Amino acid sequence: MKKTCLMILAGTLSTIPPLHAQNQTLAEIRNMRMFETRSAGFVLDRDQSVQIELVGALGNGRGHKLLGTSAWILNAKTREVVWQARSGEERRRSRKLLELQDTAALDKGEYEVYFSSFYYGFYSSDDVKGFGDAIGNVFDRIFDWNRRDERFDDQIYDEAMIVVKGAGRAVPDATVDEWRRELTRDAIVTLTHLSDEAYERQGFTLERPMDVRIYALGEIRYEESYDYGWIMNAKTHEKIWQFSYRNSEHGGGDKKNRLFNEVISLPAGDYVAYFVTDDSHSSREWNATPPYDPNFWGMVIRPAETSMKAYVKNFEYADPPETNVIVKFTRVGDNDYHSQGFTLKKALPVRIYAIGEGRDGEMFDYGWITDANTGKKVWEMTPTPARKFGK
């Protein structure tokens, strides 16, 4: 009887992973500096709850407790945020540091953990519950902003860290880089990891109608776009899709980080994908808290069904040759005024391609055509039926 009990106990113990295997360090990021974002990768061989230990810079403003630190975990395949430092068992480590212990239930798979040391300079509207909170946030910003360097410095970030533990294994940075390359291997267009003042474009042909997934991250506010992209029909020059505030969602980090991750349908045809950035806030150097997927700043377009990649061809797009041009005004500067006369020997249709600035029914940069004999205006660029372009 005693022997049987020992055999049963031995069989039971063999199904339980060793304790050290359940508490392996899967990812660890330490020795941060101000305005830095770093990542590490790990693999889980089974579904489980991982343990997360975080030491971050503590803020005295409203809303975010970790005003000088942010951390999150991405599913490496889906790019979905599966955990972020919002709540957990907290303990104040010092006047400027907060310890956070938390768990995250994760499925078997590959993951990337991120740690960022950017200051949350602007409150989230989600944190404002009423007029009093809004006024309080304004005063926090006025009286705390100039003291942020005193409260958050490199010495503070020497102690900041994140450690993820569980049953799995850590992977080197080269493996994480390969995971990211794998996501673009079957892409139609890859315009990512863009720096400041970039202007990138890629032509592509769809031999069949196709559903494509667009994954785009950029800098867009409600009133204006700064880092964004669009798709143009290469033959007609018609813009058929644009990354805008209205069709996107918050991409994590600062409020101006926007994400588009949807499937759209395109007819067979020739297209050009564009992505442009302004002079600041990009994957080369962030000027505010970066998005959750900072390495994909820009745009990736891929078939919704991988098998459809066989019906895609890429080409280098070139602007059409300037033939039969009657009048051309380009690269017009501020306060410029240009005019040029022309004569038509017979009535004929002409194509006008013009880009200018207009808002709320009023034009600021625009053109017009007048009859030289009568002075009558025969055409003018107006907000309607002009099509919105760019910002």
Rank of each mutant, 00 (worst) to 15 (best):
G168A: 13
L106H: 03
D126A: 15
K165D: 09
Y119W: 06
Y114M: 03
V138Q: 12
V164A: 08
K108Y: 09
D154L: 03
A167E: 11
Q155Y: 06
A105H: 05
R141M: 11
D133N: 02
D153T: 07
A134V: 07
D127G: 09
D149P: 14
G136H: 12
W145H: 07
V164N: 13
Y111G: 00
F152A: 11
W145Y: 08
E159V: 02
E110A: 01
F115A: 03
V113M: 04
G109I: 04
G132T: 13
T103W: 06
S117W: 02
V163A: 06
F143E: 08
Y157V: 00
D144Q: 10
G130S: 05
F152L: 12
Y114G: 02
E150W: 10
E110Y: 04
V164Y: 08
Y123V: 14
E159S: 14
D107L: 13
R169P: 00
R141I: 09
S124L: 02
E159Q: 12
Q155F: 05
G168F: 06
M161R: 15
E112W: 00
G130N: 15
D140F: 01
R147V: 00
Q155E: 14
F118S: 06
F115D: 03
S116R: 03
E159Y: 14
F118Q: 03
E110Q: 10
R141W: 05
G168W: 06
A134L: 14
F115V: 04
W145F: 12
V138K: 12
K165F: 04
D133L: 00
G168Y: 10
A105N: 09
I135F: 13
A170E: 13
K129C: 00
S124Q: 05
T103S: 11
Q155A: 10
F131Y: 14
I135Y: 07
E112M: 05
N137G: 12
D126T: 13
K165M: 15
S125V: 15
F152M: 07
Y123G: 09
I142H: 06
M161S: 13
G166H: 01
A105S: 12
G130C: 07
A167Y: 05
V128S: 06
E150R: 12
F115N: 06
D149M: 08
N146S: 09
